[in-house]
Design a protein around this nucleic acid. Structure first.
Lengths: 198, 198
DNA sequence: TACTAAATGGAGCGGCGCTCCGGTTCAGGT
DNA sequence: ACCTGAACCGGAGCGCCGCTCCATTTAGTA
């Protein structure tokens, strides 16, 4: 009970009941299709899966980025909220940062093509890019600052550069055993540490 | 004089003269278009620029990867040949490796969209990927081995992982001053060094 | 010059993103 | 219970693209 919180997702407030239902149907279909065909799957395919017309999808999610954002909103939110929690629970700010980045990487490699989309050459995913940055950059910055404060990390690292670098390293099919982005990220981490720990 | 070396590029040997001319025309047009529109530019656009039909392009370069490969072949070759040279001229194998990677990065960031193509989600560029790997992976491995041998770099790093990581870090528009792949690559480098240099 | 195989180019097909519009359904007032 | 207009829906349609097929042209040779 009380599944419907008092504050509903903004895009579905005030809409007609059938519209809200369709919105959820589309979201579910898109989530399924994204798993099998990636975030670049044809809109027609998602529409067919959901049993609706294409216009319905475009009405609810004007751009593809809006759709992707909506599908992964919960997980992005989880990742964002995990930041402060880790900072409180981990042994050190350094550990908190490492664990958070583990979370971030897990998220990216799990959702096929998500990292690709984030750095897509065209501007199709500009909105997605913005949403990621708006939500996660402050978290990353906070963790980074804390680790600098505690002396584990040397100052001067830009959160944007770190996040985009990690995102880039996660691009591509993960089937090749010769490539594990985590190993390179660990290397970057090592480089981030102060040369002479206290 | 003697511009035409005895051993010509294999794909143009034995062809009719007009075919060879067209091949060069297409190559030049593609190079121009790639600069402005990236390696994903429509084939029609390249054909129009070259003043030929689309079939002509497809005949000479069956896949888009073949065309891209041909356009950048010289520069890839230069990069590959620079490896041994640097190993001979640089102060140390470590320096040679660093300089070579600088070269590699320059190449990737200069050619808009090339790094993107190398890790493209679809398999359109499989041939390009293979060519890069076949030509450059041994060079990278040689430099890496030399640096390990000399004690500057700790062993265990896979050349493939390093090259793909660097390639990934170079993905995306380079207009953003907040992101410079070189800084992160330098960080990886730092992590690659032996913890305690002799 | 006449002949033949190589080379050409653009029409054509299927697929995709995105929009537009006629028909349908809901929700609130009587 | 019904009426009505506003919200909503679906898919036909347009433009763009990758790729192929084949009638036509052209280079090289006898």
């Amino acid at each position: 009970m009380a599944d419907q919180s008092p504050v509903e997702e903004s895009p579905s407030r005030g809409r007609r009941a059938d519209a809200q239902r369709n919105r959820q149907t589309v979201l579910a279909a898109a989530a399924e299709v994204f798993v099998t065909s990636g975030v670049d799957a044809p809109i027609r395919q998602i529409a067919a899966r959901a049993g609706v017309g294409m216009a319905t999808i475009y009405r609810h999610f004007p751009t593809r980025a809006d759709l992707v954002t909506a599908v992964y909103r919960h997980q992005i939110e989880e990742c964002a909220e995990a930041g402060p929690n880790l900072l409180a629970s981990a042994d050190s700010p350094f550990d908190a940062l490492r664990q958070w980045i583990d979370l971030f990487v897990d998220f990216l490699v799990t959702k096929h093509g998500l990292a690709d989309a984030l750095q897509s050459e065209s501007d199709r995913f500009a909105a997605l890019h913005s949403y990621f940055l708006d939500r996660l950059l402050p978290v990353c910055a906070q963790l980074l600052d804390a680790a600098v404060e505690s002396g584990d990390i040397r100052p001067g690292t830009q959160p944007y550069e770190l996040m985009r670098g990690i995102g880039n390293l996660c691009i591509g099919r993960d089937s090749d055993p010769r490539y594990d982005p985590r190993r390179l990220i660990a290397l970057i981490f090592q480089g981030l540490q102060r040369p002479h720990a206290p």
